[in-house]
């Protein structure tokens, strides 16, 4: 049975690299200084999708991402690994969205895609770690969800069998499709980019990106329609502005404070043998250890 698979992917700042240089003097993050990456668990999700495609000939994998213009990179990354096409949901009106407004926008885009059997996304994005968007998209579409998936074992007779990895164990569940499945980082890593696909798709661009490059591109894209990446705005997906961005977000940030940790009077030591031995003796004497 061929499947229509939608993969939800997000471009995120690489939180591993939130080093000193990524911080501004006022203690906030300098997002521009952080490399933007494909959210790690979304790559695990993509791999599950590609495996389903391998097992079910004729299936298609569509990447759906929401973000600023440069998030089109996520679609190209997906194409390099075997996805078939992608949509970038981008509009100023989406900015400032909490998870609820985000899932509203995404579910409207999925309604526009219309024809799908399964939606697969990462469990959570590393810039917020909330794990809320997957279940909320499922609720808004009125379909079931399977979270914490580690392996989509099979899809047969309109049902998927999925192994879940929970905090304290594992579960195998079966779910009627269509459904949303969110994938854990413990799932198989994503296959690498394929050299042929890089050749094929490296000039794939959104309309906005095309405006920024020289004209010869236009010709190339006209000859090869698969190089045109679709961009969707609020109006394209017929979203109601009231439910998008800030106004669609029931949660508000009241304030942000830099925390001043109660700096302790700390003892400063080096790695010298006598200093380490003194420390050990002190900790033993006051029964902190031993």
């Amino acid at each position: 049975m061929s499947l229509k698979i939608v993969v939800l992917a997000k471009q995120v700042p690489d939180t591993h690299n939130v080093g000193k240089d990524a911080m501004k003097a006022d203690g906030t993050v300098n997002r521009a200084a952080l490399p933007a990456i494909f959210n790690p668990e979304d790559l695990n999700a993509l791999e599950q999708a590609l495996r389903l495609k391998d097992k079910n000939p004729g299936s298609t994998v569509t990447i759906l991402t929401m973000g600023p213009g440069k998030a089109a990179e996520v679609i190209r990354e997906g194409l390099y690994r075997g996805a078939d096409n992608g949509y970038l949901l981008t509009d100023r009106a989406f900015a400032g969205a909490d998870t609820l407004a985000t899932s509203y926008a995404i579910h409207m885009a999925i309604k526009k895609i219309k024809d799908f059997d399964v939606i697969i996304g990462g469990r959570q994005a590393i810039d917020g770690d909330t794990a809320q968007v997957g279940p909320q998209v499922a609720e808004k579409l009125g379909i079931p969800q399977v979270t914490y998936a580690e392996d989509i074992l099979s899809v047969e007779n309109g049902k998927a069998t999925v192994k879940r990895r929970l905090e304290r164990g594992t579960e195998v569940v079966s779910v009627a499709l269509p459904a949303v499945i969110t994938v854990n980082g413990s799932a198989a890593p994503c296959r690498p980019r394929n050299a042929k696909l890089i050749q094929k798709y490296k000039y794939a661009k959104t309309i906005t990106e095309k405006q920024e490059v020289i004209n010869d591109y236009a010709d190339l894209c006209n000859q090869r329609p698969y190089l045109n990446l679709q961009e969707w705005s609020v109006d394209d997906v017929q979203a109601d502005r009231q439910f998008c961005g800030l106004s669609g977000s029931p949660t508000k940030v009241k304030n942000i404070e830099s925390v001043v940790f109660q700096a302790k009077e700390s003892k400063k030591l080096t790695a010298a043998d006598n200093e380490i031995e003194e420390l050990i003796k002190e900790l033993m004497a006051n029964h902190t250890i031993g």
Binding site: P13, V29, D127, P250, N255, I256, S258
Partner: peptide, 18 residues
């Protein structure tokens, strides 16, 4: 007041649902 550390840096955000 729903208080949690916010992404990056030494900041704590207070979130409300008015």
């Amino acid at each position: 007041y729903q208080i949690r550390p916010a992404f990056g840096g030494n900041i704590v955000a207070t979130i409300i649902n008015p």
